[in-house]
């Protein structure tokens, strides 16, 4: 009985032709520069594979780097048509205050290896003292980045990539701010809430909020803003050295989310 039933069983993967591995690896820019601040935009490298063979192929790139580097991906696999550059992004970050140095990211496809230099830059002098510092929020929506409100991108049109909002729709207050690593003197805070042609501030922006600063463990309210319909709100005050700054947001014009494109602080 068993012999009669024992007909052909086809292990499917055996029947598929193996791909060739003539793949050219590329990466731009070289070197890639990284600023060692927690919320500064990551060093961005565009990885590329080009199939120089005669048939389309599936290729796997292994991505590795010095232990000092945090990489957004360790694998880049793709279908590769012939002679078409196929790209994928790699983001590189390092811990705060990593010493300036040159590190390496290694890209391997089959026998092909490329070493990409990664230059850790000194922390730049900044007028906006919130830029790239560690953001702290009551919550962050899954589609947004915690760092989106202090990443230097003030363009409401790029809201999805460069902004922040909370994850508690219709529930207030929400908080968003920065904890400084050392006391920092500020006398002006600028809020850019969502304000684009599609999503004007009067419809989608933050409406009511308190600006608070912390010294030691004491929070002090510096300003209260109510009924705001503007995209950009500037608050000035007497200079003071603070350990943290935050907005306590009580409402937005759609009563849904608290949307921050960028939060900035300065000392003249």
């Amino acid at each position: 009985m068993l012999r009669r039933l024992a007909l052909v069983a086809v292990p499917l993967t055996l029947l598929v032709a193996t791909s060739n591995n003539q793949v050219e690896v590329s990466a731009t820019p070289q070197p890639v520069e990284v600023i060692p601040l927690p919320c500064f935009p990551a060093g961005k490298l565009t990885l590329g594979m080009t199939n120089t063979g005669r048939k389309p192929a599936i290729a796997d790139m292994r991505v590795s780097g010095d232990p000092a580097l945090t990489l957004s991906r360790h694998q880049f696999s793709s279908y590769l048509p012939v002679d078409q550059l196929v790209k994928a992004p790699l983001e590189i970050t390092v811990p705060r205050d990593t010493a300036p140095a040159t590190h390496t990211v290694n890209l391997t496809v089959g026998n092909e290896h490329v070493d990409v230099p990664v230059v850790i830059k000194p922390v730049p002098a900044r007028d906006n003292v919130l830029l790239g510092e560690q953001a702290v929020a009551s919550s962050t929506n899954g589609n947004m980045r915690l760092c989106g409100g202090v990443d230097g991108n003030t363009d409401s049109a790029q809201w999805g990539a460069g902004g922040w909002h909370d994850n508690t729709k219709g529930v207030f207050p929400d908080t968003y701010g920065v904890d400084f690593v050392q006391p920092t003197t500020i006398d002006r805070v600028v809020l850019q809430t969502l304000d684009s042609t599609t999503y004007p501030a009067a419809v989608m922006g933050i409406r009511e909020f308190d600006l608070q600063v912390r010294t030691g463990s004491t929070w002090t309210t510096v300003a209260e803003v109510r009924g705001n319909v503007q995209g950009r709100v500037t608050i000035t005050f007497e200079p003071r050295a603070v350990d943290a700054v935050q907005l306590v947001i009580h409402d937005s014009n759609d009563h849904g989310y608290s949307r921050i494109v960028e939060l900035e602080a300065y000392h003249n």
Binding site: L5, A9, P11, L12, L14, V16, I58
Partner: peptide
């Protein structure tokens, strides 16, 4: 029915067997 299939990296080590008979 039984047999041996090959799990290959180019298929993410997935195995498909079309079991006949």
């Amino acid at each position: 029915r039984r047999g041996t299939a090959h799990a290959r990296a180019e298929y993410a080590h997935a195995v498909h067997v079309d079991v006949r008979g």
